[in-house]
């Protein structure tokens, strides 16, 4: 079985955001595999360990993404592809078209990705890719079980409700928290990763005309939210503080829940 994992590199979740010259500064930032994509990488490796096959990790992004792909290789992926080209804009439409071109030439039994990326928070590329490839998809899965060689059952988290779906491969799934606990790369894994195939591709390599990946959206402004000032720490014994707090809130009961 051939499993493709689409992944991206993001800031670590503990990073603060600093805007410098109108863009988010990357200076001194710790980069990680997008946490949701990490679940996808882990799931693909587990499938391979259980049933055999090959795992290819694929990223579209700047050259620094190579580091995240190396981590995926160290975790146990077999091969990495980095599609990097200054002519690919920061736009989900464009990225999905680039990936679709790659996957059209390189068919997989299963494509896994993250539910969304914690930087842009758009949650578009994987589902767009499924649509472009005419593959069925289920997003936000918390469990993936094979019921035959080419039929799977998945559990989807739908805002806390659980949906159980069944479908034939090839298909695309996006990972939600709870799918698995990603492993840390082992030292032998890190050493092995250095010898694994790593391909860097340009737009020309995947056969895309730059005119076909023009951005559909443009950023007009980037800014930080207003800083929240610390408020007051209540004083007195606890029952007194509780009464004080409720008094300060002026709540009104409404049918849709209590409001201020």
């Amino acid at each position: 079985m051939k499993v493709g994992v689409i992944m991206k590199q993001t800031f670590d979740t503990e990073e603060k955001i600093i805007i410098h010259n109108g863009i988010i500064s990357e200076e001194g930032v710790k980069f990680v595999i997008n946490p949701y994509d990490e679940y996808a990488v882990e799931e693909a490796i587990r499938l391979k360990e259980n049933a055999g096959g090959q795992v290819v990790a694929i990223s579209v992004g700047p050259p620094r993404c190579a580091e995240a792909l190396r981590t995926a290789l160290a975790m146990g992926a077999d091969e990495a592809i980095l599609i990097t080209d200054d002519r690919i804009p920061h736009d989900e439409y464009a990225v999905s078209v680039v990936l679709a071109a790659y996957f059209a030439d390189n068919p997989f039994d299963l494509i896994l990705g993250g539910n969304f990326a914690i930087d842009t928070g758009a949650g578009q590329v994987a589902v767009r890719l499924a649509e472009l490839l005419q593959l069925p998809h289920v997003s936000s899965i918390t469990k993936l079980t094979f019921i035959s060689v080419e039929r799977v059952q998945v559990e989807r988290d739908a805002e806390g409700d659980l949906e159980l779906l069944e479908l034939d491969l090839p298909a695309l799934f996006t990972a939600q928290q709870g799918l698995n606990e990603p492993r840390y790369p082992s030292l032998p894994g890190i050493l092995k990763a250095k010898k694994k195939p790593f391909q860097q591709l340009s737009l020309d390599d995947v056969g895309i005309d730059p005119n076909d990946v023009q951005a559909k959206t443009n950023r007009a402004e980037l800014f930080l939210p207003p800083v929240r000032a610390a408020g007051q720490i209540l004083q007195g014994d606890l029952p007194e503080q509780a009464a004080k707090l409720v008094g300060l809130l002026h709540i009104t009961p409404r049918p849709g829940g209590t409001s201020l």
Binding site: I17, I19, I24, T120, G121, T217, R219, A220, E221, L222
Partner: peptide, 15 residues
């Protein structure tokens, strides 16, 4: 819309 879960915000237009 928020980016980085609201650590920053962006204003965007459609082309």
């Amino acid at each position: 819309r928020p980016v980085y879960a609201g650590k920053a915000l962006e204003k965007k237009t459609f082309a």
